[in-house]
Design a protein around this nucleic acid. Sequence first.
DNA 1: ATTTGTTTTGCAATCGATTGCTTTATCTGC
DNA 2: GCAGATAAAGCAATCGATTGCAAAACAAAT
Lengths: 329, 329
Amino acid sequence: MTIYDIAKKAGVSASTVSRVVNNKPGIKPETRQKIEELLKEYGYTPNETARGLVNRSSKMIGILITDIRYAHYMDIAFFVEQELSRAGYTCLIVNTGTTDESKVDAIHRLAQRQIDGLLTVGSTFQCDAVKEALAKSFPDIPIAMANGYLPLPNVKGVLVDEYNGVMECVKLMQENNHHKIAFIRPNSTPANLNKQKGFLQATREGKAPECADWIYQAATSLEEGYRVTQQILREHPDVEGLMFCEDEAAVSGVRALTDAGVKVPQQVNVIGVDNTRYCEICNPKLTALDNMMLEMSMESSRILLESLNGNNPPARIMLFSRIIQRETT
Amino acid sequence: MTIYDIAKKAGVSASTVSRVVNNKPGIKPETRQKIEELLKEYGYTPNETARGLVNRSSKMIGILITDIRYAHYMDIAFFVEQELSRAGYTCLIVNTGTTDESKVDAIHRLAQRQIDGLLTVGSTFQCDAVKEALAKSFPDIPIAMANGYLPLPNVKGVLVDEYNGVMECVKLMQENNHHKIAFIRPNSTPANLNKQKGFLQATREGKAPECADWIYQAATSLEEGYRVTQQILREHPDVEGLMFCEDEAAVSGVRALTDAGVKVPQQVNVIGVDNTRYCEICNPKLTALDNMMLEMSMESSRILLESLNGNNPPARIMLFSRIIQRETT
DNA sequence: ATTTGTTTTGCAATCGATTGCTTTATCTGC
DNA sequence: GCAGATAAAGCAATCGATTGCAAAACAAAT
C-alpha cells in the first residue's frame, strides 16, 4: 500500500494524500475525511525509508554499547531506548566489543545508516580511536555520551563525579575502622583512573598510606573478581577492605571472601560501583556507589533530543554519585 | 558524498560508480581502479536509505523483547545481534513491555521501518494479540521466534522442552528426598503452563501428590520472589522444595529462606529456570534448568538468516534443556 | 575500410515519499 | 453574471541509489 494506491482509490493525487497523512493544511475537510477512511481501511503505513530519503532524517538513533550483557550498561540502554522511542525514534543498538578496532568498526557500520543522532553508553568510548572515528564518520549529527565526554563540537556528555564518590566510599570504610584497602579496576580507562585518584586521595589522608600500592586489575567478570580476591588475600592477608570499580567482580569478591572463611563485613568491607541488581542478589548484599544510572539515562537522552530539536544544551553535565549502604560495610 | 559527486570527479556516470561500489562486472579495470581510489579518498559510504528504497530491503532486523533488563532475554539478544550483524544486518531492538497493547503497539511502530526480518525473544509473544498483529503488519517477511512459536506461514520457532525439563527438576528434588514442592510462575503464559504440566506430572508420580495445589504466582523480580517465598513458608511450613519458572525470583527465594533461618539445600531445595548469571551470584549458588540460551540464539538467528536467503528451514525446532546442579539441591 | 562481435559506459525509469509552484475550483461582493 | 480573491488540488522535481536497455567504443575478422 503506497501513497499512490491510496490516491488512485480516492481519485486524488499523491500530494493530497501525503498532505493528509502529515496533517498539512489546505485540504478540503470532506476530502481529508474520505482519504483518512481509506488510509485506515487499507492499513496504510508510511514507508519510512522513502521518507528518510527526502527528509534527510531517518528518525533512527544509533546506540553504542561495548557489551549489553553488563547489567549497568543494559539498564541505561533500556531507559534510553524508552525515552527515545517515546519521542518517535527507533534505536539501533550495536554491541561494539571492547577493543579499539571493534569499536571503530561498529562506528563505520553505523555510518551507512542515515542515523539522526548517536548515543554512547559507558566510559570506554572516551578514547582517541573513537574520537577520530566519530569526527570522520559523524561530523554533523548530535552525539550524546552517557558516562563520557569527548571534545568534539557535536558531542555532549553526561558525567558522574566518581572521584569524590570513590573517595567517600574509602572514607566510609575508614570510618568503620577498616584502613587497609585494596583497589581493583578492570582496566585503565580515564574513568577508572579517575576513580583510582579518588582512592589514592583517601588512602593518602587515611591511616594506612601504604595501600596506595594495593592496586589490582580484574576484568568485569565473576571469574576475575574471584581470582583477584584470592590473590589479594594471599598477598595481603591483613586486608580490611576491597574497593571495586564495578559490581560484577565485587559480588564475586564477596563470595571469594566468605568461601575463604573471611567474615564480611566484620573482617573485610567490600564496595562496588554501579549499584546494579547484582548488589541485591549478593549475600551479604553489596554496598555500592550508585552512579545514577536513571538520571544518567534521562539526562543523556534529554540532551540528545534537545540537540536534535536544534537547541544547544550544555556540553557537559555532571551528576553526583551517592553510596547505597547495604550489608558489606 | 553521493555517487554523483564521485561520478563527476571521475568523469563517468553514476551507473558506473554504482557498479564499482557493488562489484558488478563489465567495468574496465582501469576505470574501476580509478573510481575505487576516489571512493577511498573521499570516504564514500553508500546511503543505505536510498539503497533500501530501490532494493526493497533495508538490511535491518527488528528484535522484539518484552524487557531487555531480564538477564536471560538480554543474553539472547546479545548473541542474536552478534550473529545478525556478522551477516550484515543491523538490529532494531525494541522493548515491548509485557501487556498485549504495548506489544501490538511496538509491532506497529516497527511496521513503518522496512525491516527485512523479525525476531522475537521470549515465550510471551505466543499470544493471539501478537499473532494477529504480526499477520497484519508483517505478512511476508520471515519471522523467527526464540523460545516461541505461532502458527503463521512465515513464522519459524525454536522451542525448549521445558515440560520434561521441569519434570526432571522435580524428580531431582524427590530423589534428594524432598517431596513437598511448591511451583511458582510469573504468569500463565503457554510456556509457563507447560512447565506447570511438567511439575504436575512429577508430583502426581511422587510421594506428595497434594502439592499439585501448591501453585503460586510471583512476577519476575527480586521483591516478588522474596514475598512469595515468605507466603509459602507461612502457608506450608513443611515445604521441602521450590520450583521457580525463572531465576530472578528464585535467587530472591533463596535469600528469603536463609533470612528465615531455613537451611538451603538441607531443608529446602530451590531450582530456577534459565540459568542466568544470577545463579552464580546467588549464595548458595542456584541450581537451574538451563534452557539452552546460546543454542537458542544461534538456532533462531540461523533459521531467520536461512529464511532471508530464500531457504525454508523447519517451522519448529525443539531443544532439550538440562539441569545445571549447583548448591541449592 | 567495413562489418561483426564484444566490452564499456550512459540514459532514463524506478523505489515511495515530500513540497514549491502552478493550475483549477470555489467563494465573495458588486 | 463577472472580476478578483482565496481555497483546494495537481504537476513535477527531488532525495540517492539500482538496473534494463540502448548507445558508444573498441577489437577482431573479412
